[in-house]
Design a binder for these strands. Structure first.
Length: 718
DNA sequence: GACCTGCTGCGGTTTG
């Protein structure tokens, strides 16, 4: 290691070496960027591997990104070479020659993606068996990326299938910068005995975070280009761009925004500004629609560190290759989750100096008839709430994923294809046995298989002796190149009104008949939902123009974030980290909170609608919206509650007083539409999907009952 | 109205 200029082992590396060499336990190593956690895992694992006799692949390193595999390959290759251990990259773009050689004589280390493991198990089971037989350890990088979403369920299944090939269960080592929910991570690593997992945390490095929240107000609505030019005013994003230009230019930084559109708009304003001042360009956009070449050029430039560079990015830069030393992180728009915020902060790895975080908040211009939700200055309030939760070191726990049925079906198809056939009880035991991370009741599994059989979506057939086989549709599905990944790529829903196609929208959340969606500057009421054809039949809604509060749906808010927002509004202290604009927004929000009487009222009239303010997170609000829809109302969900359309508070109070507690989720699930959101859900029995939705949401039933009870007690006084 | 992630095997030809 001295060759790399290291003087000694860092604390986390010392701990990892002792933990890995000292016991056979699974290990999680939590440490920030550039902390040397890859080496911390590999040094002891390679030491053990070097001592093993006979051939065979010893270590499998799994990454969610191809780019990360290439990066780690460059770092590990010299180390492996010195130890005389071969190392092979294995992903779709990796060179074929070394892969072929590895299959011929398996040895050393392989760096691979989950999808490529799937490819091996599915298409070349004999090669896979030969490759994995002597496996000694499995390293999962960016572990937190696998703790939510279908890909984590998928990888958990793949590792069980690999374990079945090997003689002993290979030891697992997980690497992660931030793990909000360490318990969930331990369960994922080792479902049989999660408490046996050694969790190693690097000591909190550096002197903490220096942060600021800056507030910017949009010009009055309807202020056209002329007026803006006349008053010398500009929109909030331009002012934010100016501040970023003046303060971030000359160093390396990361600026995050929630949408590709905002990223492009901000990068464009920064480019304009650089041209105007006749200075070299150093602000560049980075998001999923940009070519790999453009993105890589930017990443390389950041890492090289010889030209000042600021990347303006979506979540693309949250994961992945080491970006080198970064002076500050800018966040345009208040954060929505602490896990995201921490992830972004963690990307600014700079030893010895405090991390710098600037949160830029935009609020609308207010006039007397502004919507009450706008008057509350919720962006600013959410930014303050997130900073408080950051200081309290809280992170969202992971939630149950809605793609379990899809993953179960996917893995069943893969098992059948790789083995030529499988019996249902054996498949169930392999995928959902007592020691599996995934659980699926045998009766539900039977329904899943039946729904995919000849009477259902026709993917599966059963031979007379009970063996499950692929049907024709199943063969086609498994043959497709698209099969390897279990996650769905963006799908557009067609919005149709009276037979006329209005356009397409990407839609990820479930909704119900009576949901209101905004499109092309108007509001539309959902009449029917065709899950399979992906068509939403809508009619123009009476309320016509889009109200200001109808913001695009976004990452879900957790209960604790909205509860903290309520605390921030009820409080009197003004945090010093707010700039003048931010302070003003916070005071305005608190004034509105008092004037609206939100400390004792929850139903707030807004034009012809009524806002129900619950101060609960997205999950509770969506269930509440379904309860109200099932009572015949038209409802939209917003960040701190729901909005019932075209009813007065009195009318709404009457409905709420008639409603008893929250109905059983089983009953409510009848009113949920658009349930088929995961990749293979089109092939899953609908009543099973409803039951699974109900089971997943059962935990919110008491919360919704509680909200309804609260509403009844506050409206009784009207 | 958000965002992100990955991908075969074979037969033919060309190249070192």
């Amino acid at each position: 290691m001295r060759d790399e200029g290291w003087t000694g082992l860092r604390e986390i590396q010392d701990a990892a070496i002792r933990s890995i060499l000292g016991s056979g336990n699974d290990v999680i190593i939590m440490a920030g960027t550039a902390s040397g956690k890859t080496e911390a895992a590999f040094l002891p694992l390679l030491t053990e591997a070097a001592e093993m006799t006979g051939g065979g692949l010893r270590l499998l390193y799994i990454s969610p990104l191809k780019a990360l595999i290439n990066d780690q390959f460059r770092r590990l290759e010299p180390l492996c070479e010195r130890l005389g251990i071969p190392i092979t990259r294995w992903h779709g773009d990796a060179p074929q020659g070394p892969k072929t050689r590895l299959l011929k004589t398996p040895s050393g280390v392989a760096l691979i993606t989950p999808e490529s493991i799937e490819g091996l198990l599915l298409r070349r089971p004999a090669d896979a068996a030969k490759l994995f037989r002597g496996l000694h350890g499995i390293v999962v990088d960016e572990l937190h990326a696998f703790l939510q979403g279908p890909r984590g369920l998928h990888l958990a299944c793949l590792l069980r299938r690999v374990d079945r090939i090997t003689s002993g269960r290979p030891r697992r080592v997980g690497l992660s910068a931030t793990l909000g929910d360490a318990d969930a991570a331990c369960r994922w690593m080792n479902a049989v005995n999660p408490q046996s997992v050694d969790v190693l945390r690097a000591p909190q490095s550096g002197p903490g975070v220096r942060l600021q929240i800056r507030g910017y107000e949009e010009p009055p609505e309807g202020a056209g280009i002329d007026e803006i030019a006349e008053n010398g005013a500009s929109d909030a994003l331009s002012q934010i761009a100016d501040h970023i230009f003046l303060n971030l230019r000359g160093s390396n930084n990361l600026a995050f925004a929630a949408s590709r559109r905002t990223v492009e708009a901000l990068a464009d304003r920064l480019r304009e500004r650089s041209e105007r001042d006749n200075v070299p360009e150093e602000f560049f956009p980075h998001h999923g629609s940009l070519s790999k070449e453009l993105r890589e050029t930017l990443e390389t430039r950041l890492k090289a560190g010889d030209q000042p560079t600021t990347a303006v990015a979506t979540t693309t830069l949250e994961l992945g290759v080491d970006l080198g030393s970064v002076q500050s992180v800018a966040q345009v728009g208040a954060p929505r989750s602490l896990s995201g915020l921490k992830q972004r902060l963690g990307r600014s790895g700079r030893r010895g100096t405090p991390a710098v975080l600037r949160i830029y908040v935009r609020e609308d211009h207010l006039d007397p008839d502004s919507d009450p939700l706008d008057k509350l200055r919720l962006e600013t309030v959410r930014a303050v709430a997130c900073v408080q939760l950051l200081q309290a070191n809280w992170v969202e726990p992971s939630t149950e994923d809605s793609s379990l049925a899809t993953v179960a079906l996917h893995q069943t198809l893969s098992l059948i294809a790789s083995q030529g056939g499988v019996r249902a009880p054996a498949a169930h035991k392999l995928l959902f046995g007592r020691d599996s991370y995934l659980s699926f009741a045998p009766t539900d599994y039977a329904d899943l298989l039946r729904g995919a059989g000849p009477q259902g979506s026709d993917l599966l057939e059963q031979s007379p002796d009970g063996m499950l086989m692929l049907g024709k549709a199943g063969e086609e599905l498994v043959q497709a190149r698209d099969f390897y990944a279990v996650f769905k790529t963006d799908e557009e829903w067609r919005l149709v009104s009276s037979g006329r196609t209005l356009g397409t929208v990407p839609l990820t959340n479930v909704l119900g008949i009576g949901s209101l969606v905004g499109f092309a500057g108007r509001r539309w009421r959902v009449e029917t939902v065709d899950d399979r054809a992906k068509v939403l039949d809508v009619i123009p809604h009476r309320s016509g123009k889009l109200p200001r509060f109808d913001r695009p749906a976004n990452e879900q808010l957790h209960d604790r974030v909205t509860a903290t927002m309520l605390e921030v509004l009820s409080d009197h202290e003004v945090p010093a980290y707010l700039d003048a604009g931010g302070k003003q927004f916070l005071l305005q929000g608190r004034n509105a909170f008092r004037e609206l009487g939100l400390d004792r009222r929850a139903l707030i009239p807004a034009a012809r609608d009524t806002h129900v303010i619950t101060w609960r997170g997205t999950a509770v609000n969506s269930v509440l919206s379904i309860v109200l829809m099932s009572a015949g109302l038209e409802v939209a969900v917003h960040d701190i509650g729901v909005t019932a359309v075209d009813v007065t508070p009195d009318q709404l109070a009457a409905v709420i007083h008639q409603a008893s507690d929250c109905p059983p989720m089983e009953d409510l699930s009848d009113f949920v539409a658009g349930l088929r959101t995961a990749k293979l859900d089109d092939f899953v029995d609908e009543s099973l999907l409803r039951r699974m939705w109900a089971a997943r949401h059962e935990r919110y039933r008491d919360d919704v009952s509680h909200v309804l009870e609260g509403l009844r007690s506050t409206t009784a006084m009207l």
